[in-house]
Design a binder for these strands. Structure first.
Lengths: 117, 117
DNA sequence: GTGTTATATAACCTATCAGTTATGCAAGCT
DNA sequence: AGCTTGCATAACTGATAGGTTATATAACAC
């Protein structure tokens, strides 16, 4: 399945290594070697993760001699957060109301079945 | 790679079909058939997506006769949102400051490497 | 009972993912 | 010039994802 941009962002965030990389980058830009150091994974593996993060728009590449330091890009994160926020508020607020409403509907259209939870 | 819980949540959110399902569920619980209807995908495919969402803790199963209506569960979403929020605020606010700070650190801890171009 | 509806599960296929090693290449260093 | 460092890329591999069809199960309707 091809991912859309939002999908690519969430997919990128799904991997713990990539999340750790983002956490690291939150405290400042870093070279590939620096980013690879905490993991017992090969450098190419890290480069691949970085490519995923980059395609998701979560990081960008700079240049400093032979280094290609990565830094965070906020945009994608904002989009992801927005998406979540929208629906979080949607049902966080309405949760109790919905619960009651559904219970009501259920007992109306079927004869009362006992509740789960 | 085995996903942790947060990872499973983000992975679940990566698929557009699953996001659409969540959006649908934000307006109330729904049976599998109801959830499957908008898609030109087989019912088993939808059941699989639902299983992914359930393992991620994003939805739960009720029972109503032969129906197994799904409903949203807020917890996982909250966790995901929290994670994003934490880092979003981290660099959204501090972006400019961080930039300057890093420049400073770089020139301090290495002997002055000339500007990063 | 028989048949139907709602859902789950199995078996299968293909594509993508996450890792590996080996190699290439550009930019310093001496 | 020749060696080293930092990174990218290619080719390969095993596992997982996402879809399919076919079948099983469970509750209802007659």
């Amino acid at each position: 399945m091809g991912h859309d941009r939002l999908g690519a962002t969430f997919a990128a965030l799904a991997d713990p290594t990539r999340r750790a990389i983002l956490v690291r980058l939150a405290s400042g830009e870093a070279s590939v070697m620096e980013l690879a150091e905490p993991f017992r994974m090969s450098q190419p593996a890290i480069s691949k993760h970085l490519k995923v993060l980059e395609r998701a728009g979560l990081i960008s590449r700079g240049r400093d001699a032979q280094r290609r330091p990565r830094r965070l890009e906020a945009k994608s994160l904002e989009e992801a957060t927005e998406w979540l926020e929208r629906y979080r508020e949607f049902w966080e607020g309405n949760y109790q109301r919905l619960d009651a409403l559904l219970e009501e509907l259920k007992t109306t259209q079927k004869k009362g079945r006992s509740t789960k939870r």
